[in-house]
């Protein structure tokens, strides 16, 4: 009579050391009295030995390990680099956001005429209107990390657009699987 699937599973669990003490004792008692079951155990053992040969072949040699760890180290270094770039990029995003509105801060400045008298002479005073556009760089927490001033809205907007492009490029490099040929971009 063929050994049942349940018994085969039991034998496998026995060899896996997954039976309780009681179950293992019970099985050993059956094996002592059942030649067919004992034969099945030997077959299961032989199958396992064959697989062990295969599993032993999976172990890589030292040079493969050295190559792998070197690759991992290189990836770690790349990750650190891009992490720094990305952090900077975040500042720039915040800056771009500030530009849009923030700025249209205009200032009126008086430029006193050097010839103006002490008591003041409205006829000799030249008043000039100057518009200042300021780009504020903020980090994720909203802290100001830098300020750049421009004398025209176009220049401020151009600066913000450049920053946005640069940041987008940096993020792609950091998140994608790009090969970096140069760190100047």
């Amino acid at each position: 009579m063929a050994v049942s699937e349940n018994d085969l599973e039991l034998l496998e669990a026995y060899l896996d050391d997954a039976l309780s003490m009681g179950e293992a004792d019970q099985l050993r008692a059956r094996l002592a009295n059942d030649a067919e079951l004992a034969g099945a155990l030997e077959r299961v053992r032989a199958e396992r030995a064959t697989r062990r040969t295969f599993f032993a072949s999976l172990e890589p040699d030292d040079s493969t390990i050295a190559k792998l760890t070197a690759q991992v180290r290189a990836s770690m270094a790349r990750r650190r680099y891009f992490s720094r770039v990305l952090r900077l990029g975040r500042y720039i995003t915040a800056a771009a956001a500030c530009v849009v509105a923030g700025f249209l801060a205009r200032g009126w400045f008086d430029h006193p005429n050097p010839n103006q008298t002490a008591n003041g002479n409205p006829n000799n005073t030249k008043i000039e209107k100057i518009e200042i556009y300021q780009v504020t760089l903020r980090d994720d927490a909203g802290h100001v990390v830098g300020v750049q001033k421009f004398n025209s809205l176009e220049k401020a907007q151009e600066f913000a657009a450049d920053l946005a492009r640069w940041q987008s490029h940096s993020e792609r490099l950091a998140s994608g699987r790009f090969v970096v040929h140069s760190d100047r971009f």
């Binding site: 064959t50 295969f54 032993a56 999976l58 172990e59």
Partner: peptide, 22 residues
């Protein structure tokens, strides 16, 4: 790979068995 590269137990491995099991 595996089994066709040198391994710590390379000499003991039956290449045919490894290929069949693989």
């Amino acid at each position: 790979h595996p089994g066709q590269q040198a391994s710590p137990v390379g000499g003991m491995i039956d290449a045919e068995t490894v290929a069949q099991v693989r």
